[in-house]
Nucleic acid binder design. Structure first.
Lengths: 196, 196
DNA sequence: ATTCGAATCGAATGAACGTTCGATAGAACG
DNA sequence: CGTTCTATCGAACGTTCATTCGATTCGAAT
């Protein structure tokens, strides 16, 4: 049933866009129905509940985020792998309108059973960067977790200040941030190594 | 009217706590009333509207944030000034429960006229860090804005990964992040200088 | 031609929302 | 003692919310 699936995706597109703009709790099922050009009752033919809508939207966003960073695994050089990861992550944040907001702001609105899947994926995604950093600087030891948190912060915050006309395209910004982070991480690791 | 002001503050405390935990739109006036041990109607003796409650809460949070970083101005050395700024900023984020969330997530729920004041303060706060960084590395030129964005990202994201038992106290974490950022910022600036 | 299931809708349901109203208790003041 | 003012409340207002129900359309299958 291709038609059904297509409509389902379109409706999730509308929901995702509204959640990203206004937040989950500020968006009503009527808003979603209006945006998707369907009646409110018709919406429930495709979505069991508003909670499920949020759950579906979160999963989709994660799919895309992971698809964008998965190419980093193709590189054998750890530096290139990190660089590709940052590029993929940042590209998702800075394009796709502002749908990353749903993950960052509205994921907490998921009830317990719906959220467990997404939370596991989030932890794994975080851990993949920790591992990458640990491989890049084996002497960093316990620093990798803090460094991963710092790097994710740098990246996740970028949409609040990034302006294409002032900062160049996404690739250039990704490289600047990678360099900024990596120089700090490397020399901190060297200090930690020297003092041990 | 000391009693009135005290009660007013108590009510804002309750509102702030609930906004931080659940978000603005997920918090009802009935929730606030229950937390503050007052009737719903009684709430309106102290607050003109829910929007005003959010506005008051945001202003209070900014007051405390600025009070915590204001001491950095006492130092003449730019490095120490940055270090103190980071310490003050991070101390606010990592203590005071999770009230920073109201600024980061719910400020956008303010309507146009209520938000202009807070938005101006936010811009000024950001600019103060840009200026500080520009002073620290005069050769960095246009990098200061991006660097300030990166640093704020590192700091604002910290509450999502920080755990006292694993990362030490707030001061130690502030110093680690300051070093991590500053080593990267300085060597990036040197590169930019050398290539010009 | 009749049946059937997929897709859609208008209308309703009960609950919760932000806000307002009129009343009341008690302290302060003349 | 009577009046005024501050702080408080229960009850209601009209609106919106997420969700459900029963009915309808329409192309495909029998």
């Amino acid at each position: 049933m291709q038609a059904y699936d297509q409509r389902h995706e379109d409706i999730l597109d509308s929901a995702e866009s509204l959640f990203a703009q206004q937040g989950f709790h500020a968006t009503s099922m009527r808003d979603i129905a209006r945006a998707a050009c369907i009646s409110v009752a018709g919406l429930y033919y495709y979505l069991p509940s508003k909670q499920h809508a949020l759950s579906f939207v979160c999963e989709r966003i994660f799919d895309r985020l992971e698809a964008g960073t998965a190419e980093s695994a193709r590189y054998s050089d750890p530096y290139e792998r990190l660089s590709a990861f940052v590029r993929g992550h940042l590209r998702y944040l800075l394009t796709n309108n502002r749908s990353y907001r749903v993950l960052l702001h509205d994921m907490q609105a998921l009830d317990r059973e719906s959220s467990s899947g997404v939370r596991v994926r989030r932890r794994r995604y975080f851990q993949s960067l920790v591992d990458l950093l640990a491989e890049l600087e084996p002497h960093a030891e316990g620093n990798a977790r803090v460094a991963a948190g710092a790097l994710f912060g740098m990246l996740n915050w970028a949409p609040t200040w990034y302006r294409e006309e002032a900062d160049g395209d996404v690739e250039a910004t990704a490289e600047r941030l990678t360099e900024l982070f990596l120089r700090g991480f490397r020399s901190s690791a060297l200090v930690a190594e020297a003092s041990s």
